[in-house]
Nucleic acid binder design. Structure first.
Lengths: 188, 188
DNA sequence: TGTTCTTGATTGGTCGATCAATTAAAGATA
DNA sequence: TATCTTTAATTGATCGACCAATCAAGAACA
C-alpha cells in the first residue's frame, strides 16, 4: 500500500474532502472521521498529515482563498478600463467559486474567523487584496475609488450570504447583475 | 427558591444568555451548561423550559429578529420621503442591533440557517419584511425600487459581516454612511 | 394536597487525538 | 542478486474529555 510521495496527494484529497463535507453539512461540525472517509483514508492518517482538525480547516480556507485570488488575477490582464472591473466581479461568481458547497464553506469560514485568529488573518488578507484590485481598476473611473471599492466588497459578501439561503439553487447571473448595475450608477 | 410564574422570567434570561454566550464564543459551540450558568440556573432547568438546545437557539434568533424588526418599525412613522429610508438604514446600525455580541450571534445564525429549516424560514421572513419596507420607502424615489431594495439589503448584510472582523471594535457611523452614500447616488 | 420549580446524578453517545504495530518502498552493503 | 537497514505510510484500538438529554426526588408555594 504505502507508495512513497503520498503526502501531497493525501493532503490535497483531505482539503477537498474538508470543503466538500463542510459544504455538505453546512456547518463546521464535521468529524475528522467523515472527512477522512470521504478522502479514502483513516482518521489517524488525517491527523498524521495535518496534526489537528484546526489545521485542516485552515488549510482548506487557504485553498479556497488562493483559488479565488487566482481566478481574479487570471481574468485581469488586458481589457482596459471598465473591463478590468467587470472581470473582478465576474470572477466572484464564476462557477468554481459560486458552487453551493463552496459558498456554504465560505460562510462557515467567516464564522470561524470570529474565533480563530489565523482564520481572521486570512480573511483580512483577502479583503485587502480584493480592495486593492478594485481600487486600481476604479481609479480612472471614479473620483472616490476607496468608497466604491468598499461598497463593492461588502456587496459581494452580502450577495454571497444571501445566495445560500435561496432554496432553489443560486442564480449567479442575477447576483452578478446586481453588482454590475450598482457600478453603472456609481460611475456616473 | 421556586417562585411561581418563573417561566417567562427564566425563558427571557435564557434567551439573553444564549445570545450573549454565542456572541462571546463567536460560535454555536456553546454548551447548555454555559448558557444556564450565565442565566443563573442549572442546565436541567434550561432543558425543562425549552425542551432542547435547538429550541433555545431558535428562540434566541426569533428574539433578535423581532428586536430588529421592532426597532425598524418604531423609527418609521412620520418623516416623509427620504426620511423613512434613512430611518430603516439607521435602525440597522443602532447600538442595540450593532453590538459585537449581537452581530456575532447574527453571523452564526446565518450559518445555522444553512442547516436548520426553521432558522432558514425565520431569516427569509426577515429578508421579506426588510425588502418590503425598503420598497415602500423607495417607491416615490426610484424607478426601480425592487433592485435598489435588493442592493441595500445585501449591502447591510455585507457590512455586518465585515464589521465583526475588524479588530478594534465596530464603526457604526462609517457603516451607516457607506449605505446612505449608496442611496444618494442610486436616487439620482 | 397537588402543582410548579429546581437540581444532582446519571446515561448514552460522540469525537479528537494518541500510540503501538504493520506494511512496503528505497537505499546501502557485500 | 540477496539481504539488511532506514524511512514513510497506514491503520486498529483506545483513551480521555465533553456534552445533550433524562429522571427521580426535593423544595416551595397555592
Amino acid at each position: 500500500m504505502p507508495r512513497i510521495g503520498a503526502e501531497p496527494i493525501r493532503k490535497a484529497a483531505l482539503i477537498n474532502a474538508t470543503i466538500f463535507e463542510i459544504g455538505r453539512a453546512g456547518s463546521l461540525n464535521v468529524t475528522v472521521a467523515q472527512i477522512a472517509r470521504r478522502a479514502g483514508m483513516s482518521p489517524a492518517l488525517a491527523h498524521h498529515y495535518f496534526g489537528s482538525k484546526e489545521q485542516m480547516f485552515l488549510s482548506a480556507m487557504r485553498y479556497i482563498l488562493r483559488n479565488y485570488g487566482r481566478s481574479v488575477s487570471e481574468t485581469l490582464p488586458g481589457r482596459g478600463q471598465r473591463g478590468r472591473l467587470n472581470a473582478i466581479v465576474r470572477a466572484s461568481f464564476a462557477p468554481q467559486n459560486f458552487q453551493r458547497e463552496t459558498v456554504s464553506a465560505w460562510v462557515n469560514f467567516y464564522a470561524l474567523a470570529l474565533i480563530n485568529p489565523e482564520a481572521r488573518r486570512l480573511l483580512r488578507v483577502y479583503h485587502r487584496r480584493l480592495r486593492s484590485n478594485l481600487v486600481i481598476a476604479l481609479r480612472p473611473l471614479s473620483d472616490d475609488p476607496g468608497r466604491v471599492a468598499e461598497t463593492v466588497g461588502a456587496l459581494i459578501d452580502g450577495v454571497y450570504l444571501r445566495a445560500v439561503l435561496i432554496p432553489g439553487g443560486v442564480d449567479a447571473q442575477a447576483a452578478e447583475k446586481l453588482i454590475l448595475d450598482y457600478l453603472d450608477e456609481a460611475l456616473t
